[in-house]
Amino acid sequence: MDRLARFEANRPRLLGLAYRLLGEASEAEDVVQEAYLRWDAADGVDVPEAWLTKVVTNLCLTRLTSARARRELYTGPWLPEPVFTEHGELGPLETAEQRDSLSMGLLFLLERLTPPERAAFVLREAFGHSHREIGEILDLDESHVRQLYRRARQHVGDGRKRFTATTEQRREIVERFLAATVDGDLAALERMFADQVVSWADGGGKVSAARRPILGRDRVARYVAGLHRDPRADQIEFAVRSINGSPGLAMHLHGELFGVVLLEPGEDGLIALHTVVNPDKLAYAAAQKSA
């Protein structure tokens, strides 16, 4: 296998790693391209996969430092860029850990972590690296890596329960949510939500969106049910797509992607809604090939 083919075989995994670390697909793609340029110029790489993982991780750590400062000045809630994942764009999604580590809910929580904590968490949870291997990637001793990972788990929440529904069950939840939203069925929406459900919306100051989270079953249900009164409602086309490893809603207006909605189910109903309508955040997904 030649050098280019070897790199391309690793590209989805590397893109998945960079995206989980940055939460920005366009930035992740830039990182992977920079890693390729370094790979193309390097000689004597004994273990290409390990070498590339280290390069991508450390490029992301550098970018995260400046990204955190930008996000503190962001207008309204900052949510990760959504990515369509029907075609394995972000690497394998064979395990619950791999899928969960792409969820909008978890990526949102990862914003609480320092860059090294985030790297330790992602490398361990999503890619199954040992503490020793992570230490080699980050140039840290194993005991330090264990501390980083432990702190990351505490910040994200050791007790965070993963909803163990099948893809088909999640799709059915999305379809029921869509039907209730289109009909403006307040009662049906209320039945779907947990008591403490939270709705987050990212308009980035570019388009109209709630700039504060909406809390509680009644308020979120009224907010969602009211969307069918939008004067554009009859022109919106909805599609259930695989987004960030799970079924979600893609919304198109006049053929253009203008929003995505990702639902986070819990044992007692939906616990979070994440809506991205900032056009800058949708550019990557809009450029992806269709399902």
Rank of each mutant, 00 (worst) to 15 (best):
M192Y: 00
T181I: 03
R124W: 12
L189I: 07
S143W: 12
F127P: 02
V145W: 07
K161L: 15
Y149Q: 05
A179G: 04
G128I: 09
S143Q: 15
E172P: 00
F163W: 13
D195V: 09
I173R: 06
L178P: 00
R171Y: 00
I134Q: 04
I173M: 10
R162L: 15
H131Y: 15
L178F: 03
H144S: 15
A179C: 03
R132G: 11
I134D: 02
R153M: 12
D139W: 12
S130D: 07
E168V: 13
R153Y: 03
E142R: 14
G184E: 08
V156M: 00
F177I: 01
F193Y: 14
G128H: 05
I134M: 05
A165E: 10
R146D: 11
D183V: 01
L140R: 14
L148G: 04
E136D: 12
A126M: 05
E125D: 12
T181C: 02
Y149D: 10
R170P: 02
H144F: 12
F127Q: 04
F127Y: 15
D139R: 13
V174D: 01
E190N: 04
V122P: 06
F127M: 02
H155Q: 13
R153K: 14
I137A: 03
R191G: 09
F163S: 14
D195Q: 11
M192N: 01
G128R: 06
V145K: 05
R146A: 13
L178R: 13
I137H: 00
L148Q: 06
R151P: 01
R153I: 05
L148A: 08
A126F: 05
G157N: 03
A179K: 09
R150I: 02
A188T: 11
Q169H: 07
R191L: 10
G184V: 08
V145P: 08
G184M: 08
V174F: 02
R132T: 11
V122D: 08
Q147E: 15
R132Y: 12
A187T: 12
T164H: 14
H131D: 14
H144P: 02
K161E: 14
G159H: 11
L138C: 06
Q147R: 15
H144Y: 11
Q154A: 14
K161W: 11
E133W: 01
R151C: 02
D195K: 11
T181V: 03
D185E: 09
G157C: 06
L140Y: 13
A152Q: 03
R151V: 04
A187W: 05
R171N: 03
S143V: 13
Q154T: 13
